[in-house]
Amino acid sequence: MAAASEICVRARDVIRKFDDKKVLHDISLDVAKGGIFGLLGPSGSGKTTFVKLIAGIDEATSGQIEVLGTPMPKLAMMVRIGYMAQSDALYAELTAKENLEFFGALFGLRGSRLKQRMHEVMALVNLTDHMERSVGAYSGGMKRRLSLAIALLHEPEVLILDEPTVGIDPVLRKSIWDELQSLSRQGTTILVTTHVMDEADKCDRLGMLRDGRLIASGSPEELKSRTGSATIEEAFLYYGGARA
């Protein structure tokens, strides 16, 4: 394992129960700084629950989660984390600009700095022309992109994206992935959940989740070669016990 200073997210024996139902079973995982870490798993596997713990929205029933060496949840860490939820958490009555201004202000951005960041992130997700439009009139894909722009607004060191490319057309999906890769080259650690197996190939490292258990982790190549599979999907099936 990498040295402590190189670790962005460290999870140890994380258990999350809702009432009596265990959703996460003893997950231990290290995510290195920089690079894109993909959390791969079908719907209901506990991906969202897990990233919420890392984002500090939820608290583990037992076990520890540290982000950049700080135990979570911790309010002061929120400024260093960017989070994009699975559902587009936007204010439909407001314009994109007003949404950005609101979230920017929550993160302490103001004045010319806020303006500059707003234009940068909107250009990034290709929405500059729709700045003044009411979000209620946005298409599903546009809302997804605006959510991403808001998560990037305060230049977080850690970016947590819950299914960022759902409902986005392939051309735009590619441009978003290119952007994520460029951000990660600049040093941002990106944690992304997905259930689309071909997106997993674009990640530097992968964690496979199934029924709340981490069944495998490693780089896509490692996972494929270890299991003798041609695709990530086959590797997932192997670890999932379908081809033991």
Partner: peptide, 14 residues
């Protein structure tokens, strides 16, 4: 219900 509360809780807002 719109998920914005959860989004707010992922900000430093107390």
């Amino acid at each position: 219900t719109s998920g914005t509360l959860e989004r707010l809780l992922a900000t430093p807002l107390r």
